[in-house]
């Protein structure tokens, strides 16, 4: 047996399990993360202070943050993406011949998946500390709103973010609906229709949160925010008994994907 054949047969043997894990990973943890992420970021609408306190809460995990990020966010996402690409490669979209709503959604699901994946890679490079060597890593968890606001200021970047966010949201909301069929939660056409409404509501709310966060970040008055963030950082230091200038617990540029 050639290695290629062995690979195929492993994948074939466990095709069902892999597909179900793929489906599950889209909701938990990847989808759940997206919800938390967008809702957290939307808190910027309540002011830079609120957002900063949310970010601080996450970063209070300290050294655990990195393994948690990898275990619950990056690896599941990579798994979901790689299986997703395999699925996309195995299909043959035909929406021009069969322009039915379901088929359009099928095609969009694949398109948004690919867009979201590309976007997320760029997004991580741009804001996450891991992107620093590539000229990114622009997010500063001690200055959450202001650093994000600066990064999102160019109009082009904002547009790409809007596309990326909406793709991810559609992919999740539509995926929720198809997942219910795949796992057999809704089986009758009527139940599918009801579930469809729920998916639409989830999608609209989540899309609103995502775009709200984007707009909120861009509306932040950087000077003012910086002042607030500095003050909050100082208070934290006082509470932790650190001197100004001491090394922070977390490296200044380090952050989780959270708060990007």
């Amino acid at each position: 047996m050639s290695p290629a054949e062995a690979e195929t047969s492993f994948f074939s043997r466990h095709q069902f399990l892999i597909s179900r894990l793929f489906s599950l990973s889209g909701l938990i943890p990847v989808g759940a993360f997206l919800v938390v992420h967008l809702v957290t970021n939307a808190s910027v609408l309540a002011g830079p202070g609120t957002f900063q306190s949310r970010v601080d809460l996450i970063h209070s995990l300290g050294p655990l943050l990195v393994p948690i990020e990898w275990a619950f966010i990056f690896l599941p996402m990579l798994f979901h993406a790689s299986v997703g690409f395999a699925i996309i490669a195995g299909g043959l979209p035909n929406v021009s011949s069969y322009p039915y709503v379901g088929n359009v959604r099928y095609t969009l699901q694949r398109a948004t998946g690919m867009i979201a994946f590309a976007f997320i890679i760029w997004h991580v490079i741009q804001l996450h500390w891991m992107g620093a060597p590539l000229g990114g890593g622009k997010f500063d968890p001690h200055h959450a709103s202001s650093s994000a606001a600066l990064a999102l200021q160019p109009v082009g970047v904002a547009i790409l973010y809007a596309i990326g966010i909406l793709s991810a949201v559609f992919h999740l909301a539509n995926g929720l609906w198809t997942m219910g069929i795949t796992w057999g939660l809704w089986t009758s056409p009527a139940a599918m229709q009801r579930a469809n409404w729920i998916s639409i509501i989830v999608g609209v709310l989540l899309g609103g949160a995502g775009l709200g966060a984007l707009a909120g970040m861009r509306r932040v008055d950087v000077e003012q925010a910086r002042a607030i963030e500095d003050r909050m950082d100082e208070m934290k230091r006082m509470l932790e008994g650190r001197e100004p200038g001491d090394a922070p617990l977390v490296r200044p540029v380090a952050t989780s994907a959270e708060g990007n």
């Binding site: 069902f16 179900r20 069929i181 795949t182």
Partner: peptide, 19 residues
């Protein structure tokens, strides 16, 4: 249905029911 080429290949395009 759960072996290779089984139900998991379905992508929920729902063209089947439409045509």
């Amino acid at each position: 249905l759960t072996s290779a080429g089984g139900i998991q290949v379905c992508g929920n395009a729902q063209n089947c029911v439409a045509v």
